[in-house]
């Protein structure tokens, strides 16, 4: 008997959330799974008590090669949350590397074509202060 396994559901939900989809429907044989997603899950808001120059490391989301490095991926660029900075390519598929928050790129830690392990730093961002 075919059934939707939990990992597939988890994967689909994560993908839907990342792409900003509102509905997810999975069908395997007779089994169906559907869900509605709220517009944007409450993302952790930077607290006002955060240090002024809080930096965030953007790590590789998967193991693969750094490809399609965007012009914005250079020290000094201002980026917005969700801006795609580059891709990590694995087994012929690209996975976007988005900026995790609004901010400014402080340093770039990997170059086009580099092999990356999971979580390996690609860039360091300085978060834009809420009041800035």
């Amino acid at each position: 008997m075919a059934s939707v396994d939990l990992d597939a559901i988890r994967h689909a939900l994560r993908l839907a959330r990342d792409k900003g989809f509102r509905e997810v429907e999975l069908e395997v044989g007779e089994t169906r799974f559907s869900a509605g997603l709220s517009a944007r899950p409450a993302a952790p808001r930077p607290s006002s008590a955060a240090p002024q120059d809080e930096t965030v490391t953007v790590g590789a989301p998967i193991v693969g090669y750094l490809q399609k490095v965007r012009p914005s991926l250079k020290p000094g660029s201002k980026v917005q949350e969700g801006d795609v900075l580059a891709c990590v390519t694995a087994l012929g598929l690209d996975t976007d590397v988005p900026a995790p928050c609004d901010g400014e790129i402080v340093s770039v830690e990997a170059a086009e074509g580099d092999a990356l392990e999971y979580g390996q730093p690609i860039a360091v961002l300085r978060k834009r202060r809420p009041d800035a």
Binding site: G64, A90, L116, E117
Partner: peptide, 9 residues
């Protein structure tokens, strides 16, 4: 995917 890519890289 990650395990296969670890083999490759």
């Amino acid at each position: 995917g990650n395990v296969l890519m670890a083999v490759q890289i």
